[in-house]
């Protein structure tokens, strides 16, 4: 491995870094470093850096953001509902169009009693199933 030996410059830097880190620990742990001149200098810096910021978020910030999120979610739901109704309307229009276009065929089906009876067979069980609910109201 071709690694350069550390220069005196690097060693000075390393010592200074260690000193800075010792000051950080001393400040976090509340150690007394008054006897150590070089540490005290960085401890003063570390103390200033640990001070709370001059401004803060409002106390109700979390609830405001949560409300905003719920409002956005409700908007999304409303949009989905509007789109569903629009799609349903479109289907109804298409159905009406098809009925008008093929009205002769529909009329032919309606004039066939067997087809009407078949349709009634499908529709009646469903209607009868709903009858108790309707009478309860």
């Amino acid at each position: 491995m071709n690694r350069k030996p550390p220069s005196s410059h690097d060693e000075r830097m390393e010592r200074e870094w260690v000193l800075q880190e010792q000051a950080v620990q001393a400040e976090r742990l509340g150690l007394d470093v008054r006897h150590d001149e070089s540490l005290l200098r960085y401890r003063t810096v570390a103390r200033a850096l640990r001070q709370p910021l001059d401004r803060d978020l409002p106390p109700d910030f979390a609830s405001q953001v949560a409300e905003e999120v719920h409002a956005l979610a409700a908007d999304d739901m409303r949009l989905e509902l509007y789109l569903s109704w629009a799609l349903l309307g479109l289907l109804a229009v298409v159905l009406l169009g098809l009925t008008a276009r093929y009205s002769n065929l529909v009329m032919a089906w309606l004039s066939n009693p067997w087809l009407v009876a078949l349709a009634a067979c499908f529709a009646l069980p469903g209607l009868l199933g709903r009858l108790p609910n309707l009478t309860r109201r």
């Binding site: 830097m13 200074e16 200098r41 401890r43």
Partner: peptide, 18 residues
């Protein structure tokens, strides 16, 4: 940076600054 490391601690009254 090197100059700053070299000049550390010139004329600094610790007790007062703290």
């Amino acid at each position: 940076t090197a100059d700053a490391v070299e000049n550390a601690g010139d004329g600094f009254d610790l007790e007062t600054a703290y």
